[in-house]
């Protein structure tokens, strides 16, 4: 069982929902990332999604686009991101790490070389936004070979006919995109998400994570009642943006406060489930 699967099943056994924060690696500067990851864990993260900067993030909204631009000003590469993970693992061997990004930096490295490097530094799963299950050429096989989980997005527009491929090629959990749009859009419709999750649940053999558009405690509270994991990205990254030129301490403080809000909301939802 992978570290992601273990973490999610342990939480499920306790009736808990995972909180999964996203930050872009190297944002606002390379030496901040490892410290911020530890801070996220301290403030209640169960897993971390680490964005790999790419020059053309076509599925991301303005907040994450700017984060990627800040990281690329420092020429943060995929190799650098793997180095941050290695450094993080010196003190934390428990918290699963998922790399989220686009295919081209991985193509440049080579599928097998990337998979083996990622696995050896302690990455647990990979979400490649522009690599659907149908297009593989050995990519998912390479990830599978070294035990890296393959996380796929499922969106409100995903037809029934494609769910089988996601279920078959995916592992760890399924990432349900809670709205039509890019990351950080802000029209979350909880009733619609509930209907969709219900549609998916009996077709998927994996836990369901929910992300895109979860901006505050109220959103997180609603989503925690529907999914096994709640993923928050732009809400945190916009705080990094606001404090980009401040000391690391200030950034940690801002992120920590927001994380506390999310964690409390999710715990509140979990307590509700237990009462039921």
């Amino acid at each position: 069982m992978s570290r992601i699967q273990k973490t999610l099943s342990a939480l499920k056994a306790q009736g808990k929902t995972a909180l999964v924060p996203y930050v872009t690696a190297g944002d606002p500067r390379p030496n901040a990332t490892v410290a911020l990851m530890h801070k996220l864990v301290e403030k209640g993260a169960d897993m971390i999604e680490l964005g790999v900067p790419f020059s053309d993030p076509m599925a991301d909204g303005p907040v994450i686009q700017k984060a990627v631009e800040r990281a690329l000003e420092h020429n943060v590469s995929l190799d650098d991101v793997l180095e941050y993970v290695r450094a993080f693992r010196e003190k934390d061997n428990e918290t699963p790490i998922i790399l989220m990004g686009y295919l081209n930096p991985i193509e440049a490295e080579g599928y097998e070389a990337f998979a083996s490097a990622a696995s050896s530094v302690g990455v647990d799963g990979v979400l490649t936004v522009d690599m659907p299950p149908e297009e593989s050429m050995g990519y998912f096989e390479a990830l599978n070979q070294v035990g890296l989980d393959r996380i796929f997005l499922v969106s409100p527009t995903t037809p029934e006919s494609r769910l089988a491929a996601v279920n078959q090629k995916g592992s760890g959990f399924v990432y349900y995109v809670s709205l039509k749009g890019v990351t950080g859009s802000n029209e979350l419709d909880a009733a619609d998400v509930a209907r969709q999750i219900e549609r998916l649940q009996d077709k998927m053999d994996m836990p369901m994570g929910i992300g895109f558009g979860i901006r505050n405690g109220e959103n997180a509270y609603q989503m925690a009642q529907l999914g096994d994991a709640v993923i928050v990205g732009s809400a945190l990254v916009s705080l990094i943006e606001a404090n980009a030129h401040c000391d690391l301490y200030e950034i940690e403080l801002a992120l920590g406060e927001k994380m506390t809000e999310f964690r409390a909301a999710i715990d509140r939802a979990d307590a509700l489930n237990v009462q039921e």
Binding site: M58, L103, V129
Partner: peptide, 17 residues
């Protein structure tokens, strides 16, 4: 050959199909 294909975000897959 090795070129082309559909490397698109999930939300667009149904529309492309």
């Amino acid at each position: 050959g090795p070129y082309g294909g559909i490397f698109a975000p999930e939300t667009l897959m149904a529309a492309l199909e």
